[in-house]
Design a protein around this nucleic acid. Structure first.
Lengths: 338, 338
DNA sequence: GTGAAAGCGCTAACAC
DNA sequence: GTGTTAGCGCTTTCAC
């Protein structure tokens, strides 16, 4: 024998229907706000819902309609403020749409990402947002066959899964180099973190280097550290680039947190910026502008990438047909550090 | 007539079952890893899954078993690094448990929180984590009747919904005051942000003030700003406390980001710390220790609050019966700023 | 170790 | 405007 018949159904639209003296369909309609229901009936139903403290079961709803109201989001890390801004943009765009973000964190690990995609897909999300463009082939395959709108953020994908809006990190590195070359600097140092997992930093640096060398400049010293990027990292490792008479005129950083730490080191060690040493960075974080000597950096529209990504998921969900790969653009934020 | 009969079921355990030459039940068992299935059968099923690119539908599973594998999490903001550390702790604890966090952001708004709780509850999460203790009565009611494990984090709740692990912010303010009084300071200023939404900051300050005044000290000037807390806020508003001969010996801050900005102001304006002015703060963020003059602050176990919260949700989900309200404790991190 | 049938709570598709 | 019926894709329960 199968499971015993329902005994005391509670918290079902059926209970609400009975109490309101209508059919379950009517309750369903009131709940979803679709179709027309007589105002009097609506009132009765809403009262019944209130009295019973009924909470709609979207699990059953999603199954029945094969339409979920969740949007899956995977970010590399929440410890990195860059991603939290993207998340904020996504949350902002989704707010009030009826869709909810479900967030997964892959810690820069493509294997974890694959696992996450698989298990998030099991909840049949309406759309998928990935805040990075490095994936395993299986991940791409899985998402392509899922047949839901997908957006990749942060960088321009060479072979996008579906939609994409991100930065051209090569252009970022190039522009930064052009700027500092224009200022007359020719001898450079570099301090970066986690190039093995943050591919975009490597792309920026390589492009920076290429442009510098093409113009006759030199990269005298490169320090890359494999620990989590942060202020204290910059503070602790800056001595490698600041001490002695290395001839370095300007240090380029993988991001503003590292640069800020480096500036703290300089402040604590009486190194004059930009007189003794100039600094240039990437991120456009609040901290760059709040430094005693504001740091020249590159600002990218992180919040907007998240917002636009989510908005386009919504547009597709509402039936529009389109796809795109869009350069999000960036802005050179000139401080006093170079 | 109701909906037309299933035509081409794809991506169902039925399709897998047919291909593997077994019943759907067997596929289900393999998928969930429960019960015993002959190794040969398992292999056949797994092959079929692979060939079909089948993705498990947890929606249907959750409905049938009335058991979901999602844990709902609500944080006040992701812009505040404090919450991202809590999230990281939660993600860490849930990792590998089979449960997935579903994150909502209420932006410090109890009304939004209520909406979020309602709509997240509609997905029948297995548990609920709230990274704050301020709620509308309806929220509390809703969660209490949901009959799922609930954890509140960050502060000690007076009337906890269920479990709670957080800081005693009154003790924090008191300890900070004791420390600075012990150092001989008697005349204080305060710079805080967003007291209307961040209740914990107000609690810390009031407790600080009480302790100071009881000891014969004075709070000479209080500046509270209603904008999003951050480095630049500290940088821009510090002048109100630093300029002139106000007699202020030490400034207390609502958090480290504000304090760091204040230090940037002092650095840029040649105010000697702690000679001209001492600083004390709260948070224990990386930035406090990376300053040219490390800032004395209070460190709380944010990651661990998240981790422990999630772990206890899991314990309850595995059948254990218990509840608790736990003081997470804190540590005075003595820098050179006072 | 495996299968059959009923049902989780809801909504699509129609009828009235 | 409202009700009826079948079924979304899975798991429960029991039988073999």
């Amino acid at each position: 024998m199968p499971r015993p018949p329902n005994q005391k159904k509670h918290n079902t639209i059926e209970a609400v229907a009975v109490r309101a003296g209508v059919s379950t369909m009517t309750v369903s309609r009131v709940l979803r706000g679709t179709d027309k229901v007589a105002l009097k009936t609506q009132k009765k139903v809403n009262e019944a819902i209130e009295e019973l403290g009924y909470v709609h079961n979207r699990l059953a709803g999603a199954l029945a309609s094969s339409r979920s109201a969740q949007v899956a989001v995977i970010v590399s890390s929440v410890g990195n403020i860059v991603f939290t801004e993207v998340l904020a943009g996504i949350a902002h765009a989704l707010d009030g749409s009826g869709y909810q973000p479900v967030i997964g964190i892959c810690e820069y690990d493509a294997g974890r990402e694959l696992d996450l995609v698989r298990s998030m897909l099991a909840w049949r999300p309406a759309g998928f947002i990935l805040a990075h463009t490095q994936h395993k082939p299986e991940t791409v395959q899985l998402l392509r066959t899922a047949d839901i709108p997908v957006v990749e953020l942060m960088a321009l994908a060479k072979d996008p899964i579906d939609m994409c809006i991100g930065l051209d990190h090569e252009a970022v590195g190039h522009s930064t180099a052009e700027h500092v070359l224009g200022k007359g600097y020719r001898r450079f140092g570099y301090l970066g973190s986690n190039h093995d997992i943050d591919v975009t930093a490597a792309v920026r640096f390589n492009s920076f280097k290429k442009t510098v060398e093409k113009a006759g400049g030199e990269i005298l010293k490169v320090v890359t550290v494999n620990e989590t990027s942060g202020i204290s990292l910059g503070r602790r490792h800056m001595h490698q680039l600041a001490e002695g008479n290395s001839g370095i005129e300007l240090v380029y950083f993988s991001n503003d947190a590292v640069a800020a730490g480096a500036m703290m080191y300089c402040q604590a060690n009486n190194i004059n910026i930009p007189g003794d040493l100039a600094l240039a960075s990437f991120s456009g974080l609040e901290i760059a502008g709040a430094m005693p000597i504001p740091i020249t950096t590159i600002k990218s529209p992180r919040f907007d990438m998240g917002r636009i990504g989510a908005e386009n998921i919504l547009r597709r969900l509402s039936g529009e047909k389109f796809s795109f790969v869009k350069d999000a653009g960036f802005e050179l934020e000139i401080g006093e550090s170079c």
